[in-house]
């Protein structure tokens, strides 16, 4: 079973996107979201990202991390550095909303970690019109 970790600079985006992803899934996948500072303002709590990632690693076979702007990606990379680059965690280089939805669906279908990351990253070249 895989986990998806959504990171946003905005607590509202994190909460809303988790809700969207949960609505899309049919199978066994854990979706968690971290957004905003401790006080609930725009920003990211990089220590909470580290703790949440450790928790998901312990309770699933792999974790796909997705973030929006710079600070969230730096928080994710920092957590990976501190955990010694665990093999079962990948940051997907994908747009956050579409990437997280696609990753959630793909993970709920039982695809392996690398396949989920690949599908999420393919969203970058998705045409909407």
């Amino acid at each position: 079973m895989l986990s998806i970790l959504i990171l946003s600079h905005s607590p509202d985006i994190a909460r809303g996107l988790k809700e969207m992803c949960l609505q899309m899934i049919s199978g066994d996948v854990t979706i968690e979201a971290v957004g905003g500072t401790k006080e609930g303002n725009l920003g990211i709590d990089a220590e909470l990202v580290l703790n949440k990632l450790q928790e998901l690693m312990a309770n699933s076979d792999g974790v796909v991390v997705l973030g929006d702007i710079g600070s969230t990606i730096l928080a994710a990379k920092n957590a990976l550095n501190m955990l010694g680059f665990p093999a079962n965690v990948c940051i997907a280089d994908a747009p956050l909303v579409e990437g997280a939805v696609v990753a959630s669906v793909e993970a709920s279908l039982g695809s392996p970690l690398q396949e989920v990351v690949k599908k999420a990253e393919e969203v970058k070249s998705l045409n909407k019109l």
């Binding site: 303002n41 990211i44 990089a46 909470l48 600070s71 928080a75």
Partner: peptide, 21 residues
Amino acid sequence: GMALLSSVGGAAGPLYGTIFM
């Protein structure tokens, strides 16, 4: 380092956190 990671909030959190760690 850990205090900065948890409290800075922006990109400077992971960056300064990394410096101290």
